[in-house]
Design a protein around this nucleic acid. Structure first.
Lengths: 151, 151
DNA sequence: CCCTAATACTTTAAGCTTGAAATAAAATCC
DNA sequence: GGATTTTATTTCAAGCTTAAAGTATTAGGG
């Protein structure tokens, strides 16, 4: 396959990338389910809230996670039902709704996050600094392209 | 961030990879919806059937796409309802169910696939042979690891 | 052979996700 | 400053997805 044209190579690479991502997500989902009785969407939203060190607009949650508005609403609703997150009305703009982790949510997330990081480390243990550098350069190149898929 | 430790770098790289994949999937979903009135799961299943050049076991579909058995059943059911795919009972083993594209399904898919490939080519147009080579090496390294997430 | 275990698939309940419509509030424009 | 448009969020219907339980069939071990 030495002379494969670029479009074909790009397609094949994308399919392999997608497969790697799906497989990794499956492992992490299983890990979070078995060890922390939670799901990836919940974990992702809590991670976004934790990262922010304070209340976050609903729209920022969905923008960051690249999911729809309705999705953010739904997941936050479930987190609220378990007292892991709480909604606060926006101060200046009354259309805005802010979300933040509760005390309980912060504690629960930090325990999950430590384990999650260790699991990711294990899943990608075959990649050292050199490979990570190469991957960093490629991701950077994709992200900086005007119509970058990551917005 | 020059001295970031490996576990942290692996986690950050994974998060960026996930973001790239989600963004790309969002674009392709939108593209298929607008231009071909179909969805990614349907497209993925049809691609697996098309690739096989003949009937495929249900279990092979789910294994290939890294989704659950029940999911494969559900998506195939919808494809069947639109006469794009058809189920055939397995010959030797009566537990087995085989699936294949119909004539219509094959024609429909081939049109979709050509456009899909062009769109992927566009989304990754910033990657040339050199970057694809680097990415190929990294993916290969991950895949060949014993506990590779891609199974 | 018959019993048990393993395999292939489907069904079900619950949760996830999207796109579009609905609601509400703020910004813009005569 | 009242009408229109834009922005922020929620609601809704439909489809996607999983994990677990259920059904049917085959394989293996006395």
């Amino acid at each position: 396959m030495r002379d494969t044209d670029l479009p074909t190579r790009r397609l094949r690479t994308w399919l392999r990338l997608l497969r790697l991502t799906r497989g990794t997500e499956n492992r992490l989902r299983e890990y979070l389910r078995v060890n922390h009785d939670t799901t990836l969407p919940r974990f992702d939203v809590m991670a976004a809230l934790h990262r922010a060190h304070g209340p976050v607009k609903m729209s920022d949650v969905s923008r960051q996670l690249l999911v729809s508005n309705g999705n953010a609403t739904a997941v936050v609703e479930r987190l609220e039902k378990e007292a892991l997150a709480a909604r606060v009305p926006g101060e200046g703009d009354r259309r805005v709704v802010l979300v933040a982790l509760t005390e309980k949510g912060r504690a629960v997330f930090e325990a999950q996050a430590a384990d999650h990081k260790a699991e990711v480390d294990r899943l990608f243990s075959m990649l050292g600094h050199e490979e990570l550098n190469a991957l960093r350069d490629i991701l950077h190149r994709v992200e900086e392209a005007g119509d970058a898929p990551t917005g």
